[in-house]
């Protein structure tokens, strides 16, 4: 039995310890929002938060999460209130097929948590998730619509430079 906190609730899963977290989430916990695509930690479709950090769940043995807190796309919103990134994804109509988007949202929300004023360049450098549908242009605008602007940014926008 592996015990951990999943989207704020204690769970206990009867799975082999070496099973990747991805499959424990999808097939034992019944949360299919976390996606399988490459299975080797390359594409980011399976990204979840582990104690607040983005991890690629296909490459994390479920034993490693014992006693820790996992958040999946199903738990990103605060109850009925969408996470600001989710709302931005709707406002900017980001997804096409949508298959990569849970992973994108989890990866970028963890980054924003660390760097609320993240720049476009930093997003570009640190987010290596694949979107085969090519939604990157809208991802960039959606992210920038929710970052906290620093005073300098605001000055620049207001033409006070």
């Amino acid at each position: 039995m592996i015990d951990f906190t999943l989207n704020g609730e204690a769970v206990s899963l009867d799975v082999p310890p070496e099973m990747p977290l991805l499959w424990a989430l999808r097939e034992s916990a019944g949360l299919t929002g976390t996606k399988f695509s490459c299975g080797i930690g390359n594409c980011g479709a399976c990204t979840v938060h582990l104690d607040g950090a983005a991890v690629r769940s296909c490459s994390v043995p479920v034993a490693n999460v014992a006693g820790r807190a996992v958040i999946t796309i199903e738990g990103l919103a605060d109850g009925e209130a969408l996470h600001p990134l989710q709302q931005a994804w709707i406002d900017h109509q980001v997804p096409q097929c949508g298959y990569c988007q849970p992973g994108m949202l989890m990866a970028i929300s963890a980054l924003l948590e660390r760097r609320p004023d993240v720049t476009d360049e930093q997003v570009t450098e640190s987010i290596t998730n694949i979107c085969r549908c090519g939604t990157y242009e809208r991802i960039r605008s959606a992210v920038q619509s929710v970052v906290q602007k620093t005073d300098e940014d605001l000055d620049e926008e207001n033409g006070n430079v």
Binding site: G30, T32, G33, K35, A77, Q93, V94
Partner: peptide, 26 residues
Amino acid sequence: DRADIPGKVVGEAGYGMDVVRPDMAY
């Protein structure tokens, strides 16, 4: 706006990969 997008940002959109049936094997 596309109607399918809200489901796709909360992990609810159901893809072929996500199908679960009672007593299903893999």
